[in-house]
Simulated assay, not measured.
Amino acid sequence: MALIFFASDVFSQAINDGWEQELNKSLTEFTNCENVALCNAFIGQSLKTVYNINDFYSEKLGRYLFPHEIASFVGESDRWTLLGHAYEPDALSEAQKYANEKKAAIAVYKSDNGQGHMALILPGDLIPSGSWGVKVPNTASFFIGEPEKSYISKGLSYGFKKNLIKDVLIYARKY
């Protein structure tokens, strides 16, 4: 039994070698998607596409979680740990370090009215952000209401306006 647990733990750290190509394909499909319920799956699937982790799929609901549900899930899950807020350079740096070590990290926002947004931290380098005034991690994000704003391999500040950074939380998956 211990061997099975160990093997699954090691596998969970194996990044998908074809993640960039697959994520770009997902982005194209997402921007052409017209059914919000189906389009939402791309957000949760991005974690699986890159990091081979399916934490954002709910067996109970039979679907991928919406961004506000992801924010609640990682905040309550013992599989995820809070690194800090998006305005904290150490949290941003740690998130990029996690991604470069083939470990999943995300940034999430949940508004007071229940809406949410998520950005997936990707392997790469910290990128200077003129709007935030700090170096930010390399990310991908799918915008449900504005699919044309969706992107891959841009700084985290592209996914969240500066006025939101006090409410954006950075989480990393425990291994």
Rank of each mutant, 00 (worst) to 15 (best):
Y98A: 00
V74D: 11
K102E: 00
Y87W: 10
K135A: 12
I121C: 06
G133H: 14
L92Q: 07
S129H: 12
G75M: 06
W80Q: 02
Q115L: 14
S131H: 11
V134H: 08
V108C: 10
P123G: 13
Y109D: 02
H117N: 13
F142T: 10
A119I: 08
A107D: 09
R79F: 09
F142Q: 11
G75R: 04
E101R: 00
W132P: 03
D125E: 15
P123I: 09
S131N: 15
A99H: 01
Y98L: 00
L120Q: 06
S131E: 15
W80I: 03
A91S: 12
D90P: 01
K110V: 07
F73Q: 04
D112P: 07
S129K: 12
H85S: 12
A86V: 08
A104M: 08
V108R: 03
A119V: 12
A95G: 03
D125C: 04
T81C: 10
L122V: 02
A71P: 02
A71K: 05
A99L: 06
G116Q: 09
I70N: 06
M118P: 07
A71Y: 07
E88K: 01
I70R: 09
N138E: 08
L82A: 10
S72K: 05
Y87D: 14
K110F: 04
T139W: 02
E88L: 02
W80K: 01
E69W: 07
S141K: 05
W132F: 11
A107M: 14
D78W: 06
D125P: 00
G130D: 15
S129W: 07
R79T: 04
A86T: 05
A99W: 00
S93N: 07
G75V: 07
M118Y: 09
G116F: 08
N100D: 08
I127M: 15
Y98D: 00
E101G: 00
K103Q: 14
S141T: 11
P137A: 04
T139P: 04
S111L: 05
Q115T: 15
P128L: 09
L126N: 04
W132A: 12
R79G: 02
N138T: 08
W132M: 09
A104N: 05
S129A: 14
M118N: 11
A95F: 00
K135F: 08
N138C: 06
Y98N: 00
A119Y: 07
A140C: 13
E88A: 06
N113I: 12
N113C: 04
V74R: 06
Q115A: 13
P137D: 01
A140F: 05
L82S: 12
H85C: 02
Y109R: 10
D90H: 06
L82I: 09
V74H: 10
K110P: 04
H85I: 03
A140T: 05
L92C: 11
N138Y: 00
I106A: 07
S141A: 15
A107W: 06
G114C: 10
G75S: 12
H117T: 13
E88S: 08
F73H: 08
E69I: 07
G130S: 15
S72Y: 03
I121H: 01
Y98W: 05
D112C: 04
P137Q: 03
P128V: 09
A107P: 12
A140G: 14
G75W: 06
Y98S: 00
